[in-house]
Every structure is written in structure tokens, then in C-alpha cells.
Simulated assay, not measured.
Amino acid sequence: MTPISIRREAVARACLKRFEGRQMQFGSADCVRLAAHAMHKLNVPVPLLKGVRYRSELGAAKALNAAGFADLAEAMDAMGFARIAPAMAWPGDIVAGRSRDDGPFRYALSVVHEYGAKRTIAFGPNGFCGVGTPDLTNPDDVFAWRVSHG
């Protein structure tokens, strides 16, 4: 194993340690905080979240809109990471897939657990965080970003 792969697998383990089994709670245990934790563990600053506080879905949607983004994929693009095919994703990279139809964010973020995004760490439909298999069947609904580490 290379030092980069060891570090990235440690990032995935750190995300699991912090979030696995936790119930979704806006502002402290949600997909944005999960992705930010992975970035932090890769020594990547997350300036978009500096000073941003929210405790509800409505508060999170207002914060996203106030920052000038239509959805979470736009916010991830603003981070400056290269978009990649999900099949190219490494542990610690970020994947966005369609969220529920009536939700204000359009996408939900997850952290890659296994190479190729075969499994990701995410908050599932049951509201709890865990490792699961993302739906990668429709490439128009799934985006991935290579999180460049510092």
C-alpha cells in the first residue's frame, strides 16, 4: 500500500468512527458535516462552512441559498475539486447522489469507503449513518470529486 492509500483509508475509518450509527441531525450529524469531516482529515479547509450554523432542514436550506448555491453539487464545485467519475473515486473522496424528491438540496453527500465508490459512508433513508452501496446506475444523477489533500 502506498502512503496515500493508507492515509485515505484512515480518513474513511475516522468518518465511520465519528458518524456510524448516528441519527441524522442538521448542523452536527448530516451529510455536509460528514463530507467536511473527511476534508478536514485530509487537511483541506472548508471555508464555505466557516461561521455557518443551522439546526433544521429549513435553516440548512437558507444557509445554502444565502451562500449563493442552488444545491449541494454546486457548493462542492465551488470548493475547486476536480470532478471525477464515481468509478475513479478513492476513500475520502466525496460523492453526491440524488436526495429525496421533496428535499431542498437536490443531492446528498457521502464519503467514499471503498475504491470505485462501491461502498460509501452516508446517511441512509432510515436517517442513520452507515456504510452502504450507492446507486450509480444513472450517471446524470451522481457526481464525484477528488478531494485533494494538503
Rank of each mutant, 00 (worst) to 15 (best):
132 G>H: 05
89 A>W: 07
37 H>M: 05
136 L>M: 09
69 F>K: 00
74 E>Y: 08
34 L>D: 07
37 H>A: 12
37 H>I: 01
67 A>M: 15
28 S>H: 08
29 A>R: 09
89 A>C: 15
86 P>M: 03
129 C>M: 05
60 A>S: 12
64 L>Q: 08
135 D>A: 15
63 A>T: 02
80 G>E: 10
5 S>K: 10
101 D>G: 14
102 D>P: 00
62 K>V: 14
72 L>H: 12
92 G>C: 11
65 N>R: 15
73 A>F: 01
49 L>S: 07
38 A>W: 02
69 F>H: 11
132 G>T: 12
78 A>C: 11
85 A>Y: 01
52 V>F: 06
48 L>W: 03
117 A>N: 05
54 Y>Q: 08
64 L>W: 10
83 R>M: 06
34 L>C: 06
31 C>Q: 06
109 L>Y: 09
18 R>D: 11
103 G>H: 06
133 T>F: 00
24 M>N: 08
112 V>E: 03
47 P>M: 12
23 Q>V: 13
107 Y>R: 06
133 T>E: 14
25 Q>K: 15
81 F>W: 08
16 L>I: 10
13 R>E: 14
77 D>Q: 13
6 I>N: 04
34 L>T: 07
6 I>S: 04
108 A>Q: 10
146 R>Y: 05
8 R>A: 10
139 P>E: 08
79 M>A: 12
24 M>L: 15
100 R>G: 14
82 A>I: 05
107 Y>A: 03
51 G>D: 12
50 K>V: 15
76 M>A: 15
73 A>L: 11
144 A>I: 10
96 A>M: 11
129 C>W: 01
20 E>W: 13
135 D>M: 05
59 G>S: 06
103 G>V: 06
50 K>H: 09
13 R>P: 00
93 D>E: 05
22 R>G: 02
80 G>M: 11
74 E>C: 10
138 N>R: 14
114 E>Q: 13
49 L>F: 09
60 A>H: 10
119 R>N: 09
105 F>Q: 03
25 Q>W: 07
128 F>N: 02
32 V>N: 02
39 M>H: 03
19 F>P: 04
144 A>T: 13
10 A>Y: 02
97 G>E: 12
120 T>F: 01
115 Y>M: 11
61 A>M: 05
126 N>C: 01
132 G>Q: 10
132 G>F: 05
10 A>S: 13
62 K>E: 12
6 I>P: 00
134 P>N: 04
51 G>S: 08
75 A>G: 08
114 E>G: 00
130 G>H: 02
124 G>P: 00
27 G>I: 13
6 I>Q: 13
29 A>N: 14
49 L>W: 08
126 N>D: 15
122 A>F: 12
140 D>H: 13
8 R>Q: 08
68 G>D: 02
17 K>H: 13
44 V>A: 06
21 G>K: 02
21 G>A: 11
85 A>P: 00
55 R>H: 10
93 D>K: 08
51 G>N: 10
5 S>M: 13
10 A>I: 00
80 G>C: 09
84 I>H: 04
134 P>A: 06
33 R>N: 11
30 D>I: 01
16 L>M: 15
65 N>I: 04
98 R>H: 04
83 R>W: 04
